[in-house]
């Protein structure tokens, strides 16, 4: 009951934060002088192509770029009727990309879900690799297990992702016949989702997951090891041993539970770090994720496209933190009871 109330409260604050973020995103994108259309109009005028100018002027009106900044914002979010009535983010209308001359939703479309998929896979990979290795390294600290995992971990941290991507590419293709580049067989692009397409995506996911997740996993492993070592020195571990618990049961029941908190709290940070960190990898591996799109949009001041992508990343972050906060409350009674009289 308490947790449900907390979750609702957290959700409400998330919406509020999202609103603030939307204002900041919009303002920051509009900070550089000019916009995509006025740049284009100036260019067209200079080269004497008046037909193009007319279209650009039409777009300016259509998307209310000739109005006050705050009005533009309200229309973009959908709090205020624009030239075509209410048609903003809230109503599910993401705007128009001037650079690609198509609606934002069309450009972003599938890559949105692929981004989520790739990054979720990477996060899962991080936890699945880091947890057992970190605990093992702490339990066997200062033995060859510890040293080997630390060595591999540092290698993973030190290798640039895109380099790792190229290496895996080459050897993965040579020895395991893993496909090169992309997130699915080109034949399935634009096709509706089906069994074969899903299979193709899964196989294509292997290399990117590994590449994007490796450095995160090794960093997390080292932190988990350090945290575990701290916890292992605490008296309650001694109590557990004195009770006659076996080492593996003791490790997972007591110190891991305590050392685990920071990692739950990390979920929120992991997501955006991966989205922005994987841009280069996406370019190298030719992944149809949202990263490369964001890069182009920011470079060309394609405001609706870049604003939408930024909002999407913000949403991922906020959802991540919300999930981790609620999980923390579930996991740690000290947090759960903090508001209550002891």
């Amino acid at each position: 009951m308490l947790i449900l109330r907390y979750a609702i409260y957290r959700f409400a604050t998330m919406l509020l934060t999202l609103l603030v973020v939307s204002v900041m995103v919009f303002v920051i994108i509009n900070l550089p002088p000019g916009d995509y259309l006025s740049n284009q109009i100036a260019e067209l005028r200079a080269s004497g192509q008046d037909a193009g100018v007319a279209k650009a002027e039409f777009l300016r009106k259509e998307y209310a770029l000739d109005r006050q900044l705050w009005e533009q914002y309200m229309i973009w979010v959908g709090f205020m009727p624009g030239p075509n009535g209410f048609a903003g983010l809230v109503q599910g209308n993401f705007g128009w990309s001037f650079e690609f001359d198509r609606p934002v939703s069309e450009i972003v479309g599938e890559s949105l879900w692929l981004t989520v998929l790739v990054n979720l896979a990477a996060v899962l990979f991080v936890y699945m690799v880091a947890l057992p290795l970190g605990v093992l390294a702490a339990a066997k600290s200062k033995t060859w297990v510890d040293y080997t995992s630390a060595f591999v971990g540092y290698l993973g941290l030190a290798t640039p992702n895109f380099l790792l991507a190229l290496i895996l590419f080459y050897y993965g293709h040579k020895y395991f016949d893993l496909p090169i580049g992309g997130l699915m067989d080109p034949a399935y692009e634009g096709q509706p989702m089906g069994w074969d397409k899903a299979r193709s995506i899964l196989i294509h996911l292997i290399v990117p997951t590994f590449v994007i997740g490796t450095s995160g996993a090794s960093a997390m492993m080292q932190r988990l090891r350090a945290n575990m070592l701290d916890e292992l020195g605490k008296p309650y571990v001694e109590t557990a041993i004195a009770k006659g618990m076996s080492p593996s049961r003791m490790l997972t029941k007591y110190p891991l539970r305590v050392a685990f908190n920071p990692f739950v709290a990390d979920i929120g940070n992991l997501l955006p770090a991966m989205v922005s960190g994987s841009v280069l990898v996406s370019v190298v591996l030719g992944l149809q994720t949202i990263g490369p799109t964001l890069l182009t949009a920011l470079k060309t001041q394609d405001q609706f496209l870049s604003a939408f992508v930024l909002m999407f990343v913000a949403l991922l972050t906020l959802m991540g933190t919300m999930i981790s906060d609620v999980l923390l409350v579930l996991l740690d009674p000290r947090i759960r009871y903090a508001g209550r009289d002891a």
């Binding site: 309650y236 109590t239 557990a240 004195a242 009770k243 006659g244 539970r257 009674p333």
Partner: peptide
């Protein structure tokens, strides 16, 4: 030895604040 610990021979420690896990009832 594990069968002896906590069963035939048990122990109490100095700091009751820290000798119990904070996360378990």
């Amino acid at each position: 030895l594990r069968d002896v610990r906590g069963n035939q021979v048990s122990m109490i420690f100095q700091e009751p604040m820290r000798s119990l896990s904070p996360l378990h009832r």
